[in-house]
């Protein structure tokens, strides 16, 4: 039995309940803020910040990353880097692409050259709608 094992044993069940209560508060907060629509992209930013805080609480206390650091911290950090990498470079591609090389959206549909409607989203009944 080494030191970290003792450290995890020091606290009683109270800490878990406190974390649980905090998670419930943050859930209520995010639902409440979700009802208010902020201008620009701020709604999603705030929602993601709250989700990240909640996730951090779960990881640190429920999953004991606070006590058992080392290799598992490295694993988590590396994982997050690669998730960010995947999402970041894919989104960068679509965001900087020649618009008509993306699948047709509301913004690009009117720009489409005339032709058969086979490539239009099935959800759109007819081009005439625009």
């Amino acid at each position: 039995m080494s030191a970290p094992e003792h450290a995890s044993h020091k606290h009683g069940p109270g800490r878990y309940v406190a974390v649980w209560a905090a998670l419930l508060v943050f859930t209520a907060l995010t639902v409440g803020l979700g009802r208010i629509h902020l201008a620009g992209g701020w709604s999603i930013v705030i929602a993601m910040v709250i989700a990240t805080v909640k996730a951090s609480l779960v990881v640190l206390f429920f999953m004991h990353m606070k006590e058992h650091g080392g290799a598992s911290r490295l694993v988590l950090a590396t994982t997050l880097v690669f998730v960010a990498l995947l999402m970041g470079l894919v989104l960068l591609d679509n965001a900087t692409r020649f618009p008509l090389a993306n699948p047709p959206t509301e913004a690009t549909l009117p720009l489409m050259p005339p032709g058969p409607d086979a490539t239009l989203p099935a959800a759109v009944p007819a081009r005439a709608a625009h």
Binding site: S72, V75, L76, L86, M87, V90, A95
Partner: peptide, 30 residues
């Protein structure tokens, strides 16, 4: 055992990451 489980969780996160990427892309487009 703990390290093995964390590595397994990493694979799970990256499994979901594919779907989260699709989500982000299509939310950006539509």
């Amino acid at each position: 055992a703990r390290l093995g489980m964390w590595l397994f969780l990493a694979t799970e996160v990256l499994l979901f990451a594919g779907l989260f990427t699709a989500y982000a892309l299509y939310r950006m487009l539509y």
